[in-house]
Simulated assay, not measured.
Amino acid sequence: MDSQFKETFGSWAQAIGTVISAVGGTPSHVFDEEFRKNLDLIGNELQATGNALLADAEDTWSLNKLSNQIEAIGNLTVILGLVIDFDEVTKQELIIKGNLIQALGGGTAVADAYVNPDQPEQALNVTGNILQVIGNSMQAIGGIDELRNSIQEKDQEEDDKKQENDEEENEEGNQKYQYPDLEKKPTDAELIQTMGGWIQAVGSVLNLIGQLRSNQESRSED
């Protein structure tokens, strides 16, 4: 398998993976939560495969090679959060850390553009990587917000149960809905994560276009 084929196949796998993950992360009445979680898992597996191939395509060490290795680690961290039977807080923390690691990888790829400014289709690659950094960061921010709200909701439920035990005559009390805004905040967090997922997908598609144009230029020179 030559380097150009690895780069092309890896770029396709990464782009398709980010789009599938974005679909899985989009709230929908058509797909249930379990199906969307499976889509997210498949998407991250494709991204990890794509990033690994892109890293393997480079024979010598470079910032671009390092960035793909970091992003693959980020994808694997997200996969762990999706498949391992941890408690919900640990799972969410792994997904958040995975997205932050991916953002770090994208930032490393942007830095590579300044080290190697003469690479073909550099503008598309820089734009794509910047969008991926923004997208992953938004997913991490949304995840942090969602985790904070879920902890608050859990604490509130425990307080409600304690209050109900202390005051049996108010078993039907209003404590459960004392903070109705907590029901709405996860929706905001999901919106941030959804936007981040699609921004990352756009960035990945731009990188794919840059790779395809680079291949075309190489064939023209040959």
Rank of each mutant, 00 (worst) to 15 (best):
G173N: 08
V83N: 14
I84F: 11
N165C: 06
Q152V: 09
N99E: 04
Q156F: 03
G143M: 03
G173A: 00
S137R: 03
Q132R: 09
G81W: 00
M138L: 15
E168C: 02
A113W: 03
I144T: 13
A140R: 05
R148F: 11
F86S: 15
E167A: 12
K162W: 05
G142F: 01
Q132K: 11
G106I: 00
K154H: 11
A140T: 13
I101A: 09
G142E: 00
E168T: 08
E157H: 11
G135T: 05
L104Y: 09
Q139M: 14
P120W: 10
Q156D: 04
P117R: 07
D87F: 00
D160W: 08
L147N: 13
N136F: 09
I84N: 13
G135L: 06
D155M: 07
G143S: 04
Q132S: 04
I141N: 05
G135K: 02
A109C: 02
E171C: 01
L147W: 07
L80R: 10
V115F: 05
I151D: 12
D112V: 00
G105E: 01
K91Y: 03
N136L: 02
L147C: 06
D145T: 14
Y114E: 07
V126A: 13
D118S: 12
V126P: 05
Q102H: 08
D112E: 11
D145Q: 11
L124G: 04
K97E: 11
E167R: 12
N174E: 15
G135H: 08
Y114N: 07
I130Y: 09
N170A: 11
Q122A: 13
E169M: 07
V83E: 15
